[in-house]
Nucleic acid binder design. Structure first.
Length: 419
RNA sequence: GGAGGGCUCGCAUAGUGGCCUAGUGCGGCGGUCUUGAAAACCGCUGUUGGGUGAUCCCCAACCGUGGGUUCGAAUCCCACGCCCUCCGCCA
């Protein structure tokens, strides 16, 4: 949810944000009129309720012979109150619907345009030159690290088994990520992969991208696409002591994505899959500190990329390509020699107070309780990172170079070769 | 899955239809006293929405959630959720 006060005070800014996203500007006016309608409905119901209280006391105190007359008036009033309350709840629902329909306000400086209109903020490292690059699927099969055939046999397309060194690589990456996060002051968390509807909605995943989410109809639960969902829900309906901020969590969980609408995209290998594990950073900070925290998350992501000795670039994602909750998003794309392209490995979003409003997460500030800002950033999406490591660090002899930081977690191995 | 017990303001508790405009204790905050502290005493104490964006003031709502009965519900009725205890099943 965006700040209603801001919509009232500066509707043009909200309209401009909608326009940047390629969304409908008129929704801003719909929101404003829903807000007005709700206010007058509330005022009317409030005053009727006050009247009802007064008359209730009269009923209790009335002498026996006055009682029928007073009761008659009270009954008539009760009907009015009921009607007014009905209108109020209708207006509440209408406001909520209008409010939920508007995406977060785009941060100043975000490039305009769509998916192709990102701005490259930094390019780091030199893409390795590989004479006849194999892709990670081929390398993974040779190393007996990735088995997509049996993944398909057992679970269908976009599923995989990690075996042998592949499985060990996952544990090594998770440990490396968690060690870095803990050293930076993050609280390590193992988060649930199933969440309630209100948590899923609060994080903004049931809006434009709801087709992307798995739902268990029998239990009315959703499978998370990222532990961001559970980590955002963690403090829902809480007031966080200002002294505890910033609060930083590093969550590990499985992630599930339906990949609806991505038919034919990355069908080979484990770059785009229905299930993978991920270590995710999540920060709760005072609203004023959000933009700076966003830079910190990006720096931690870059630190991890550097440890993996990958060549990558950092991009500022254009407004039209932002998720519902994000005010700004930076992606890190690493080089895949077999594709001769940079592909997304991590993504960090500043959700400002958007998620916190929906999930009712506040802190005591100078003007009473105020929503906090929430931010998330990938530290390591395991499957895709393994794909990149194999591709990026492949050697002419078919082995794979192991970055120095990973060696202690892989029994000191400097290369991976076929067993 | 089955059987019981519970859910009230940060915590603990009182409250079985209208003097509940939710009391009391603890904790917390402020003050008096004190060289300082403790004790004692005094005062304050949650959340949401609205009243011309206002830390004061006024109004309304909130007693797990959602419905219902009633002129009126923390209190009565129904459904659901969660927690606890036991039984069954189980990694």
């Amino acid at each position: 949810m965006i700040d209603l006060k801001l919509v009232r005070d500066d509707p043009d800014r909200v309209r401009a944000s909608q326009r940047l996203r390629g969304a409908d500007e008129s929704m801003v006016d719909a929101l404003l009129s829903a807000d007005d309608a709700r206010r007058s409905a509330v005022a009317r119901a409030d005053s009727l309720r006050a009247e009802q209280k007064t008359i209730g006391r009269e009923v209790a105190q009335a002498a026996a012979h006055d009682r029928p007359a007073v009761l008659h008036r009270a009954k008539a009033l009760a009907d009015e109150v009921k009607a007014a309350e009905g209108e109020q709840s209708h207006a509440d629902a209408a406001l909520r619907a209008a409010h939920m329909g508007i995406a977060n306000i785009v941060e100043e400086g975000v490039p305009p345009g769509g998916e192709a209109d990102f701005v490259t903020l930094a390019t780091v490292g030199t893409p390795p030159i590989v004479a006849h690059p194999k892709d990670h699927t081929e390398i993974g099969a040779a190393l007996k690290a990735i088995d997509t055939d049996r993944g398909a046999k057992v679970s269908g397309a976009r599923f995989y088994f990690l075996t042998g060194i592949g499985a060990q690589l996952e544990f090594a990456l998770v440990n490396l990520a968690m060690q870095q996060a803990a050293a930076a002051g993050f609280i390590p968390v193992i988060a649930p992969a199933l969440v309630k509807p209100e948590i899923m909605e609060g994080t903004g995943f049931l809006g434009a991208h709801s087709a992307e989410v798995y739902r268990l109809a029998d239990d009315d639960l959703y499978l998370v696409g990222t532990s961001e969902v559970a980590l955002a829900g963690y403090h829902s309906n809480e007031i966080i002591d200002a002294a505890e901020l910033p609060l930083r969590y590093a969550g590990f969980s499985s992630c599930f994505r339906r990949e609806a609408g991505s038919y034919g995209k990355d069908t080979r290998g484990i770059i785009r899959v229905h299930w993978f594990d991920k270590v995710e950073m999540f920060s709760y900070v005072p609203a004023d500190d959000a933009a700076e925290e966003h830079q910190r998350l990006l720096a931690w992501e870059r630190e991890f990329m550097d440890k993996l000795e990958l060549a990558y670039r950092v991009i500022d994602v254009a407004a039209g390509d932002l998720g519902t909750s994000a005010a700004r998003k930076f992606d890190i794309e690493a080089w895949f020699p077999s594709q001769q392209a940079y592909r997304e490995l991590t993504s960090t979003s500043n959700c400002t107070t958007f998620q916190a409003r929906r999930l009712n997460i506040r802190t005591r500030g100078a003007h009473g309780n105020e929503p906090v800002a929430t931010l998330n950033g990938t530290l390591c999406a395991i499957a895709r990172t393994i794909a990149c490591l194999l591709d990026h660090h492949q050697q002419p002899d078919g082995s794979v170079y192991v970055p120095a930081a990973l060696r202690p977690l892989l029994d000191g191995r400097e290369v991976l070769s076929a067993p």
